[in-house]
Amino acid sequence: MNIDLKGQLKQHPGLAAIYEEAAAAIAAAGTEDALEAARVRHLGRKSELSRLLRAIPEMPAAERPLVGKLGNQARAALEEAMAGRRQALEAAALEERLAQERIDITLPGEPFPGGRLHLITQTLWEIEDIFTGLGYRIAEGPEVETDYYNFTALNTPEGHPARSLHDTFFIEGEAGVLLRTHTSPVQVRVMEKEDPPVYVIIPGRVYRRDSDATHTPMFHQVEGLAVDEHITMADLKGTLEAFAKSMFGAERQIRLRPHYFPFTEPSVEVDVSCMICGGKGCRSCKQSGWLEILGAGLVDPNVFGFVNYDPDEVSGFAFGMGVERIAMLKHGVTDLRMFYDNDLRFINQF
C-alpha cells in the first residue's frame, strides 16, 4: 500500500472509506470468481468510486483537482492490487492443479526401442578407430580366395607344414580356391596395387574348418600392415603398445614372445597384461598375469619378393588379431559360440 496515498487520502475521508473497503475486498477475495465480483463492485461502472469520479464535474471548482487527483490515484492503486491478487490466485490454482496431476513415476518410460550393434561390430569399429587414428587406412578383400594369396604369396608354398595348421575349407569344382583362413591375403593384394609407404588394417571374416567350444567355423580378424623405409621391430612394439593401451586401458603393458609364422621373420606373439587381475595372476590368465592377444612380426623378405618390393629399400611389420578373442577378454564373454547364436539376450547386453 502506497503510504503516501494513504496519508493524502486523509484529506478526503469519503474517498478514503471507499478505498479502504475496496482494498479489503480485493485482499479477501479467495477465488478468481470472488476477485471478479470485487472488481465489478468496487471498480466497475456502478461502483462508488466510479460514481464519485463521474460526479467531479458537479463538484465545487476548488475541490475538483484534489478529488480528481486522489480518486485516480486510488483507482490505479486498486487496479494494481487487483492484478497482484489475480496473479497470486492463478499461481495458487495452477499449483493445486499440478498437485492433483500426480502420476506413478515408478512405471517404466516409453521404450523408444534402440537396437544394438553386435559386439563383434563394436569391437571391430573400436579397433579400426584406434588404427585410423594412428594413420592407417582400412582395406578389404575377397573371402573366397585363391590358394596363391592365402598361402603361397605369404611364404607358405604347397607342402609347407604350416598349411596343415589351418583347417581350410576348399571350394568345390575350383582347384586352388578356398575360404580365406586369415585376412593376411589382403596384405598381398594391397602391396600388389600400391607402392610403399603402406599403412593399412584389414578387418574381415575368415574361415577355418573347426567347430567346438573354442572354435567357430567363421570368425573375424584384423590384420595390420606397415611398409615403409626404416620400419623396425621397435615400431611394431610401439604400435601394438599404443593399441593395447587404447583398447584395454592406459595401465596395460605388453610383452613380445618369439613365435613362428611363415610370412613374418622375426615372428612374435603379443601378450597384454591381464586386465582382470592387473597382472598379478588369476584364473583367466592361468596365473601368468598375461593374456595372448595377437601374432605379429616383420614382413618376411620372401613376401616382398612376391609383390616386387625391394627388401633392401623397405621393411615392414604385420600383425593379426582375432576380434572375438579381444571382445571376449574385454567383456568377459566365456563362450565363443554365443557370438554366432545371435540370441538377442546376448546382443542386447553390449
Binding site: 594413420g135 609407404p197 599403412y199 621391430m233 615400431d235 610401439g238 610383452r255 613380445l256 622375426p266
Partner: peptide
C-alpha cells in the same frame, strides 16, 4: 636376425612409432 632377437631379448627393444608416417588414416 630372428635368432638374435629372441635370445637377446625382445623386452630390451624400446617401443617407438614409425618415424616416416605421412599417411592419413580413415574409412573408405
Amino acid at each position: 636376425v630372428e635368432e638374435i632377437a629372441r635370445v637377446f631379448g625382445l623386452e630390451l627393444i624400446p617401443p617407438s612409432l614409425p618415424s616416416g608416417m605421412r599417411a592419413i588414416g580413415g574409412l573408405t
